[in-house]
C-alpha cells in the first residue's frame, strides 16, 4: 500500500500519480505544480490542488482521514478482492457465489428438510481447512449444532474425500515434491472442527456471546456455522417482539465477529409457510425483520429431481441459480449440468 493510494483523490488521478512514480507524499511535495502537471498529464490547477492537499496532510502528521479508522471505498474494494473465499466443492455454486462463501460476511442458507443444509455446513467446515498451498484458507471451523444433525461419520466421509482430492491436486501440481509433503489426515480435519452442541436458546445466546473470547484465543478460526439458527427460536416464544429483539442482537454479534476476525459466518435456516394475499407461500423462517440481518441469503430448492441454490439477496452478486448434487463424497456439481456442457 503506497502513501499516494491513501490520498482522498479520484481514483483516476491517483492511478496516474502512481503510474508516474509518485508513490510517497514526499516525492509529490518536492516538485512544483508545473512539473507535476506535466509528469502526470493533468491540468496545472489540479496539480496545485494535489500539492495543497499533500502539504496539508504531511503538516498534520499524516493522518489522511477525517475520522480515525475511516476508510475510503477504493481501499475497501482492494481489501475485499484480496479476501479469500471458502469453496463449496461445487464449482457451479462457487461461480454464482463469486468464488465461494465470502469471509467477513454473514451468509444465510435456507431450504426444506432434506435439501442438504447440513451437508453444506459439514462441507464448509471441512473445506475451510484446505491448506493455502492448495488454494484454501488453512483455517479452522466452529460448528454450532442446535438440531443434533451433525454426524461424525458423515464428516469423516467428506473429510476423507477432501484429503483424496487434495492428494490428487498436489500430485498433479508438483510431481517431484510429493514425497516430502506433509499430508493432512482425515482425523486432523475432525480435530480442527470446534463442535458445540446447543440444547436450548439460552445456551445458544450464551455461546454466541462467548464466541468473541473463544475466537480471540483460536485466531485461525475462519468459519462459524450455525445449524440451524432457527430451531430453538420456534418453541416457547409467545412474545414475538422479544424474539425479534433477541435475534437481531444475535445477528449483530455475528456481523461484528465476521468483520473483526474476517471470518465467514454461515447461518442455516429452515423454511416455513407464510400467508400472503390469500395463499400460502414458502419463506425462510424467523420473519421479515430477520431477513435484514444477513448480508447474503441463499435459498435451496428442488427443481424436478435436482437440487438448486438461488441467490436471493446479496449486495455484490447478481441473483442467479445453480444446480448442485450431494454425493457420498460431499457437495459436487450436478452430473446433468456437466452432461449438458459436453453435449453443447
Amino acid at each position: 500500500m503506497t502513501e499516494t493510494s491513501r490520498l482522498p483523490l479520484s481514483s483516476s488521478i491517483r492511478g496516474k500519480l502512481i503510474s508516474a512514480g509518485y508513490t510517497s507524499l514526499s516525492s509529490i511535495s518536492s516538485v512544483s505544480s508545473t512539473d507535476l502537471a506535466r509528469d502526470v498529464n493533468i491540468t496545472e490547477a489540479e496539480a496545485f490542488d494535489i500539492l495543497k492537499l499533500v502539504n496539508q496532510i504531511s503538516g498534520s502528521n499524516g493522518s489522511s482521514s477525517l475520522i480515525n479508522g475511516a476508510k475510503n471505498a477504493w481501499d475497501m474494494l482492494h481489501e475485499e478482492e484480496s479476501l479469500p473465499r471458502i469453496t463449496t466443492s461445487c464449482s457451479d455454486l462457487d461461480s454464482i457465489l463469486g468464488g465461494g462463501i465470502s469471509c467477513r460476511d454473514v451468509t444465510e442458507i435456507g431450504g426444506v428438510p432434506g435439501i442438504g443444509k447440513t451437508q453444506i455446513g459439514i462441507q464448509l467446515s471441512v473445506n475451510v481447512q484446505i491448506p493455502r498451498e492448495c488454494g484454501g484458507l488453512g483455517g479452522k471451523a466452529i460448528y454450532i449444532d442446535t438440531e443434533g444433525s451433525f454426524m461424525v461419520e458423515r464428516a469423516l466421509q467428506i473429510a476423507e474425500a477432501c484429503v483424496e482430492d487434495m492428494e490428487e491436486y498436489t500430485g498433479y501440481m508438483h510431481k517431484h515434491f510429493k514425497a516430502n509433503q506433509v499430508q493432512m489426515k482425515p482425523n486432523d480435519i475432525l480435530e480442527n472442527i470446534f463442535y458445540f452442541r446447543v440444547c436450548s436458546y439460552t445456551e445458544q445466546i450464551a455461546l454466541v456471546n462467548h464466541l468473541d473470547k473463544f475466537i480471540s484465543e483460536n485466531k485461525d478460526v475462519k468459519v462459524v456455522i450455525v445449524d440451524s439458527i432457527t430451531f430453538h427460536f420456534r418453541q416457547d416464544f409467545d412474545d414475538l417482539a422479544q424474539r425479534t429483539r433477541v435475534l437481531s442482537e444475535m445477528a449483530l454479534k455475528f456481523m461484528k465477529l465476521a468483520k473483526k476476525f474476517s471470518l465467514a459466518v454461515v447461518l442455516l435456516n429452515q423454511v416455513t409457510t407464510k400467508y400472503t394475499e390469500g395463499s400460502f407461500q414458502l419463506a425462510l423462517a424467523l420473519g421479515d425483520s430477520w431477513s435484514h440481518s444477513c448480508t447474503n441469503r441463499v435459498i435451496l430448492y428442488w427443481n424436478g429431481d435436482e437440487r438448486y441454490a438461488y441467490i436471493d439477496k446479496s449486495p455484490s452478486l447478481p441473483s442467479a441459480s445453480a444446480s448442485y448434487t450431494i454425493t457420498s463424497r460431499g457437495l459436487r456439481n450436478s452430473s446433468s449440468s456437466s452432461k449438458r456442457v459436453k453435449m453443447m
Binding site: 482425523n187 463442535y195 473463544f214
Partner: peptide, 14 residues
C-alpha cells in the same frame, strides 16, 4: 463452554 473434540470420538455413532 468447551467444544467437543470430534477427532477423539468414535468415528461412527452408536
Amino acid at each position: 463452554m468447551k467444544p467437543q473434540n470430534l477427532g477423539r470420538q468414535s468415528p461412527t455413532s452408536r
